[in-house]
Amino acid sequence: MGSFSIWHWLIVLAIVVMIFGTKKLKNIGTDLGSAVKGFKDGMKDGNAEDAAKPAPTSQQVAHNSAAKEGQTIDVQAKEKP
């Protein structure tokens, strides 16, 4: 019962084709493919933007290293208007 044989999958596929029709399944496949392509392109653009960001300044690097060492850093807080 845990795994299905090839015949089970062929029967399921035949039922799905009879219910939805080949045209509808083709449209669903096309939509899914374009969504995956758009997602991949978006991920590439996001990685390109991350690479284009400038390196952190020395002050930011010093702040991060001091925080990792457990030291206290004094910061001037400003109130919101």
Rank of each mutant, 00 (worst) to 15 (best):
Pro56Ile: 13
Glu79Ile: 12
Val17Thr: 07
Ala67His: 03
Ala67Asn: 07
Ser5Trp: 00
Leu25Phe: 02
Lys23Leu: 03
Ile28Cys: 12
Val61Asp: 04
Lys37Ser: 08
Val12His: 08
Gly29His: 14
Met43Cys: 12
Trp9Leu: 06
Thr22Tyr: 06
Leu32Phe: 13
Ile28Val: 15
Gly38Arg: 05
His8Arg: 01
Ile19Val: 14
Ala48Arg: 13
Lys37His: 02
Ala67Gln: 09
Gly70Glu: 03
Glu69His: 03
Pro81Ile: 10
Val36Ala: 10
Val61Asn: 03
His8Leu: 02
Phe4Ile: 01
Thr22Ala: 13
Ser3Val: 02
Ser58Tyr: 04
Met43Ala: 10
Phe20His: 09
Ile19Leu: 12
Leu13Ala: 15
Ala55Pro: 02
Gly29Tyr: 14
Gly29Thr: 14
Asn27Val: 12
Phe39Arg: 07
His63Gly: 02
Ala67Thr: 05
Gln76Cys: 11
Leu25Ala: 04
Lys37Gln: 06
Lys53Arg: 12
Thr22Gln: 12
Lys40Gln: 07
Asp45Ser: 14
Lys68Gly: 04
Ala77Thr: 15
Val61Phe: 02
Lys68Gln: 00
Phe39Met: 08
Phe20Ile: 09
Lys24Trp: 04
Gly33Lys: 13
Ala66Phe: 00
Thr72Phe: 04
Lys24Ala: 12
His8Gln: 00
Asp50Gly: 05
Ile28Glu: 14
Pro56His: 08
Val17Trp: 06
His63Val: 10
Glu79Cys: 05
Gly21Tyr: 03
Lys37Gly: 05
Leu25Asp: 04
Ala62Arg: 05
Trp9Ala: 04
Lys24His: 07
Ile15Gly: 05
Ile11Thr: 10
Ser3Glu: 03
Ser65Thr: 09
Ala77Trp: 14
Phe39Leu: 06
Gln71Glu: 07
Lys24Cys: 08
Thr30Arg: 15
Ala52Arg: 09
Val61Ser: 06
Trp7Val: 07
Leu13Asn: 10
Gly33His: 05
Asp31Asn: 15
Val16Pro: 05
Lys24Leu: 11
Val16Asn: 02
Asp74Val: 12
Leu10Ser: 10
Ala35Gln: 11
Trp7Tyr: 01
Lys44Ala: 15
Phe20Val: 10
Ser58His: 07
Lys80Ala: 11
Lys53Ser: 06
Pro54Trp: 01
Ile6Gly: 01
Leu13Gln: 11
Lys80Asp: 13
Ala67Gly: 08
Lys80Ile: 14
Ala51Leu: 09
Asn64Phe: 05
Lys53Asn: 07
Gly38Val: 01
Lys68Thr: 00
Ile28Tyr: 14
Asp41Pro: 01
His8Ile: 01
Gly33Tyr: 04
Gly42Glu: 03
Met43Ser: 09
Ile73Tyr: 06
Ser65Arg: 04
Ala52Thr: 08
Leu10Met: 11
Ser34Tyr: 08
Lys78Val: 15
Ile6Met: 00
Gly2Pro: 00
Lys24Gln: 09
Ala62Ser: 11
Lys44Val: 15
Val12Ala: 14
Thr72His: 05
Lys44Asp: 14
Ile28Asn: 13
Asp41Glu: 10
Leu25Trp: 01
Met18Thr: 03
